[in-house]
Design a protein around this nucleic acid. Structure first.
Length: 118
DNA sequence: CTGATGACTATAG
DNA sequence: CCTATAGCCATCA
């Protein structure tokens, strides 16, 4: 599989993340059939963000932290978009145990997070 | 070819 | 929670 194909699969995976849910770079890489290519996911998103309308903001570090510097414009943009989908972001961090996207199991027993404020 | 560089991650202290 | 280390993968000087 060449670079273009790998990038395409990564973008498809990111595009599949449902609204109100998030995934880590490593998780996206794995779901895209490329374990240990977390860094590649970041690079692909970097190269693709101009133009396409993929939900890049639904991808976070495994810790749940936004990958951009807190002072950056990207950081604020990502935080804003996530909150707009009811994804709680506190201190630049998202509770992964709560918003992590789980493809298979998910479609069956997940109910929309109309809440906020535990 | 070699070394440095990231939208990364896991493991130790 | 924080820092330090060591892997990781593609790109670039």
């Amino acid at each position: 599989m060449d670079h273009a194909a790998r990038a395409r699969r990564i973008l498809e995976t990111v595009a599949a993340i449902p609204e109100g849910r998030v995934a880590s770079y490593g998780q996206v890489a794995e779901l895209a059939g490329q374990p240990r290519a977390a860094r590649l996911v970041g690079r692909v998103l970097r190269d693709a963000d101009s133009g396409r309308a993929i939900p890049w903001y639904r991808v976070l570090r495994s810790s749940g932290h936004i990958a951009f510097p807190a002072a950056s414009r990207e950081y604020r943009e990502q935080e804003k978009r996530l909150m707009a989908e009811n994804v709680r972001v506190t201190g630049g961090r998202v509770d992964m145990s709560r918003y992590r996207w789980q493809p298979d199991l998910d479609e069956l027993l997940w109910k929309p997070p109309a809440w906020d404020e535990a």
